[in-house]
Every structure is written in C-alpha cells, then in structure tokens.
Simulated assay, not measured.
Amino acid sequence: MKQTLKAVFFDFDGTIVNSEIFHYQCFVEVLNSFDVHIEESDYFLNYAGIPIDVNSERIVAKFNLEVLPEELVEKIEELVIRHQNDHEPIFMPYAEESIKYYKNKGLTLGIVTASPFRSIVSFFKKKSFEDHFNFTVTFDDVNKSKPDPECYLQALEKSKYKSSEVIVFEDTENGVKAAKAAGLTCFAIQSEKELHFKLEKADKVFNSLQEANEYVATNFTLG
C-alpha cells in the first residue's frame, strides 16, 4: 500500500535556488580582507549548508582572526543580501517545476532553511512565489539551527500533519540530519556524486529533483 503524502518541506539554499555558489563568493570576498582563502571544494565539503554564525566561529578560531564572529556574520550577510537584491534568483534544476507540481496536487508546501528570512524575501518578490508556500521556518524562528531538528519539528507543527504524511528535500548533511532527527522521510538531492557519502543518513539520495519526483509519484499517493 502506498504511503499518503500531504506535505513537502523544501530546504532553500542549494535545493530551491542555486545560491551556494554566491554564498561561497561572498564568503571568499569577506575572508580575503583578512588574508584568508578557502578553496571552493573545501567550502562545499565542509561549510555549505551550515549556518553563517557557526561557520564564522569556526573560521575565526581556525585562522586566529582578530575579529568577533558576530562581526564576520554581519559582513557576510550584508554582502549576501546585496547580491540577492542585485541579481535574479536562479532555480536549481527542476525546482520550479517541482514546486508547481506539488502545489497543483494540493499539497502543503513549506520552506525550512538555516538562512534568515530576509534572505528569501527577494526570491519571493522577484519570482512571485509567496502563494506557492503555506509557511516558512527560517533561522530567525528557531533557537538551534540545523542539524538540530527544531526547525523541522516546528514545520511539522505548522503543517498540522503526521510525520508519516510528510517528505523533505535537502541537499546537505546537516539538513538531512535535522530532518531525520525530527522523524521525517528525507530525500537528499545532490548532483555531485562524490558528495553522496555525506548524505547517507537520508532515506534516498537522488541526482536531481526530477529523479526524486519520479520516485515519489511511483511510491506515494499525493493529496
């Protein structure tokens, strides 16, 4: 018997929008002023999907920087927001189609992100996608961010559905850990196969949202 699906929770950065690359670019630009450089491969392996405040604490400690982590957070966030305001958001492959598909099926959709709410405001404004999502849970709404399950437990409460009626789409190790710790079915989306090993706690790992959607359509009853 197929599992009934009532709600889908989407991570934001790297799952809905292709924002991780400019997060990296902002990261690099700020750190260059302190004569610190992090390779792109190092960033995506060790820093992507982790809240800015946590990364800032790690960076300050690792490189013994003479700056408070809070100041580093402020500099990076200002640069990220400026970039988002100046550039059109770029969807991850099949993200736009996936959102519309599940919405048209009558499912409840939520964004659950470790980013602050202001980071997704420009996306809503520029893409007119406010009506597609029933709610958001952002960094501003929780005491502990991913990999803590608080954000997904809060999303589950907002959706008013049972955990067995929800799936999560994530793209990072911390996101997967948070979803699974909340007792949710989590599908990881990662096109870089060399990173699949970091997502092994997910129920399944797919190369794209398209692959994941095909699996969902076959194995779940929607609505």
Rank of each mutant, 00 (worst) to 15 (best):
A212Q: 04
F124T: 01
T136H: 09
G49I: 03
L72P: 02
E211C: 02
R118L: 11
A182S: 04
A7C: 13
S164P: 02
F34Q: 06
F12N: 06
E97Q: 14
A179I: 03
F135T: 03
K126G: 00
F197I: 13
G110Q: 08
T136K: 09
E29Q: 08
D53I: 10
N174V: 01
T138P: 03
K204Q: 12
E194Y: 12
E157K: 15
I120M: 13
T15L: 13
L31S: 10
V137C: 09
T136I: 13
D11T: 06
V28F: 04
S41C: 05
A181Y: 10
V166R: 01
L31I: 09
E39W: 00
E96G: 01
I167D: 07
A178N: 04
L65Q: 05
L68E: 15
F197M: 10
N18M: 07
F135V: 04
E170G: 01
D140V: 10
S33C: 09
L72M: 03
Q154K: 15
Q84C: 11
G106I: 02
D35L: 09
V168G: 05
E194I: 12
K144S: 14
V112S: 09
N143W: 00
N134I: 05
F123Y: 14
D13A: 11
E192G: 00
K126V: 00
I52E: 08
V30F: 03
Q154R: 13
I59H: 02
Y215H: 13
H132K: 12
N219Y: 12
I76H: 07
Q84P: 02
E150V: 09
I52G: 00
F139D: 11
F124W: 11
Y43H: 07
Y161E: 14
K177A: 13
Q25A: 13
D35P: 01
S19K: 06
G106T: 08
K146V: 04
Q3N: 14
G223S: 13
Y101L: 08
V216Y: 05
V36D: 04
N46Q: 12
T138Q: 09
K180H: 03
V166N: 09
T113R: 07
N213H: 03
